[in-house]
Computed example of a mutant assay.
Amino acid sequence: MTKPPKLHRDVPAWKGLRTAAVGTGAFADAGSGAAFLDEACETLRGEGFEAVVGPMDGSTWGTYRLQTWSDGSPAFLMEPAGGPHDLAAYERAGFEIAELHVSATSAPGSRGFAERVRGVSVESWNGKDPEALLSGAHALVMEGFRATPFFTPVPQAMFLERYGPLLAHADPRFILRALDHDGNLRGLTLAFPDPMRQGAIVLKTYVGTVPGAGRAMADRIHALAGELGFREVVHALMRSGIASEAQSRKFGGTVFRRYALMGRQL
């Protein structure tokens, strides 16, 4: 490791405790990594912190998580990587798993879920006015993920800055909107053909305010992937135990990678 991870002190609480975070960065070996983490914990304890999580660059809007298991298949765009010694370093330093996440793969093709949702219609983005699309999505995302641990609301400008580059290189057919009968935005899905994991569509984010809207959009992504000749749909970076992981199983998702955010009480 040429540069030690940064320590972040403005972090959402873990277990209701005053929390700091160790940023991302690959450790050269487990021993030196554990020593760094122990020293960081002592420093933060001296500053009045009660817990430390990592790796996490400040919040879930930054890079976070380390890999705990892989089937050896290729990485996908924006997947957290880290180093081969990171998990061992955190474990040696007395950290436990604070959150588990998984990525899964499923076969393309509709499962018929879109036909079961009433009150919304699903359509692909027309590729025009990305700022308007993301402005409408901002409120949905802030509401849809507000109860997720470590989630931090961000201003609309920051949200546009983060997702704007993704839209600039996206295939609009895989950017879906769920609209009610009055044309109001009730759901959004961001998916894209992956340049790293060839033949894959990565289902990155979907959120809906109408029951079943998210599943309807996910079904349309799988249908489009089949129509356009893709070989798999990646269900990316799902937190274990919440709805997206359950939805993945309904699409026949098979886990190919596991990740963890680690935590230690001081």
Results as ranks from 00 to 15, higher is better:
38 D>I: 07
247 Q>C: 06
139 A>H: 11
58 G>H: 03
201 I>W: 04
252 G>F: 03
241 G>H: 10
58 G>S: 02
215 R>M: 02
214 G>V: 07
38 D>G: 14
230 F>P: 04
243 A>M: 11
140 L>Y: 07
263 G>L: 05
150 F>P: 07
104 A>M: 14
251 F>T: 01
83 G>E: 08
42 E>N: 09
106 S>L: 01
61 W>L: 09
49 F>Q: 12
176 L>W: 05
163 Y>H: 12
117 V>K: 09
35 A>T: 06
191 A>K: 02
69 W>L: 12
245 E>K: 03
191 A>I: 02
204 K>W: 05
109 G>A: 11
70 S>W: 08
191 A>M: 00
122 V>M: 11
263 G>Q: 05
95 F>M: 12
178 A>P: 03
171 D>P: 02
31 G>H: 06
58 G>L: 05
248 S>W: 05
92 R>D: 13
252 G>D: 04
121 S>C: 10
78 M>Y: 08
212 G>H: 08
107 A>H: 06
38 D>R: 10
261 L>T: 13
198 Q>D: 11
81 A>C: 11
48 G>H: 04
39 E>S: 14
60 T>C: 03
19 T>M: 14
59 S>H: 02
255 V>R: 04
260 A>F: 08
173 R>M: 11
227 E>L: 08
221 I>L: 12
206 Y>M: 12
94 G>A: 07
53 V>H: 01
95 F>V: 12
182 D>E: 15
242 I>S: 06
225 A>E: 00
256 F>C: 07
173 R>T: 11
215 R>G: 01
264 R>C: 02
135 S>E: 15
263 G>D: 02
25 G>I: 03
225 A>P: 06
246 A>S: 13
165 P>K: 02
159 F>E: 09
249 R>V: 09
197 R>N: 13
241 G>D: 08
209 T>C: 10
213 A>F: 10
179 L>W: 05
35 A>N: 00
112 G>R: 07
234 V>N: 13
99 E>P: 00
126 N>T: 01
180 D>H: 05
42 E>V: 14
97 I>Y: 10
196 M>C: 02
258 R>K: 15
255 V>E: 01
262 M>R: 14
46 G>W: 02
49 F>N: 12
244 S>Y: 09
162 R>H: 11
52 V>H: 01
37 L>V: 08
101 H>M: 15
220 R>I: 06
165 P>V: 00
30 A>Q: 03
256 F>W: 06
152 T>R: 15
107 A>L: 12
97 I>D: 02
106 S>Y: 00
26 A>L: 09
212 G>Y: 05
100 L>C: 09
160 L>P: 07
155 P>V: 13
115 E>D: 15
112 G>Y: 10
118 R>L: 14
90 Y>T: 05
258 R>E: 15
181 H>T: 12
91 E>I: 08
184 N>V: 13
207 V>A: 10
167 L>K: 03
144 G>M: 07
34 A>V: 09
31 G>W: 04
87 L>S: 00
193 P>A: 15
79 E>H: 06
159 F>T: 08
215 R>N: 01
263 G>C: 04
258 R>F: 12
168 A>F: 06
265 Q>D: 00
137 A>F: 14
179 L>Y: 07
66 L>F: 07
176 L>H: 01
25 G>F: 05
